[in-house]
Amino acid sequence: MEAIASLANGFMDLFRAGSETFVAWVTGIIPLVVIMMTAVNSLIKLIGEDKVNGVAEFATKYTITRYTILPVLSVIFLCNPMAYTFGRFVEEKHKAAFYDAAVSFVHPVTGLFPHANGGELFVYMGIAAGITQLGLPLGDLAVRYFIVGVIVILIRGIITDRIYAHMSGKK
């Protein structure tokens, strides 16, 4: 009888550790994320998609803005996956590069704007949880993640653009 009881306890312990993690996440992460997401979602609804469209049309003209401002705006305002619809402002030959830039920003954006990709928060949150556990502030990491994200999507946009041009030239 005791053997069975201790076996049952061991079995329960297997899940107790998980339940502690779960409670820590639900109480530690969800309240802040919910309030942030609600605030930014409200702001976006108040501004309206139409006003962003004007900026988007302007941003598509220059290489640098096409792979920085345009994808950043689209991801923040339309979120994953509707952000890619901003590809309609982009010339046909740049559409692949724009998609590459936009999709590469859906995780760097989550540090500061979790609403933009609520379904995939844990790429950032998972690593950030470790930083929190060490008692370090998250702001620095979130800001740097965002900045490096913008640099990376610019590089990615330009390189994909070149590769695409090379391939379509061959064809």
Partner: peptide, 24 residues
Amino acid sequence: VGMSLGEAEPETIELGVPAILYSR
């Protein structure tokens, strides 16, 4: 899917897929 959301032509998507994959 993402490129078709951006209203890309089918030919653009055909070239775009390998272009992005190689670029990565």
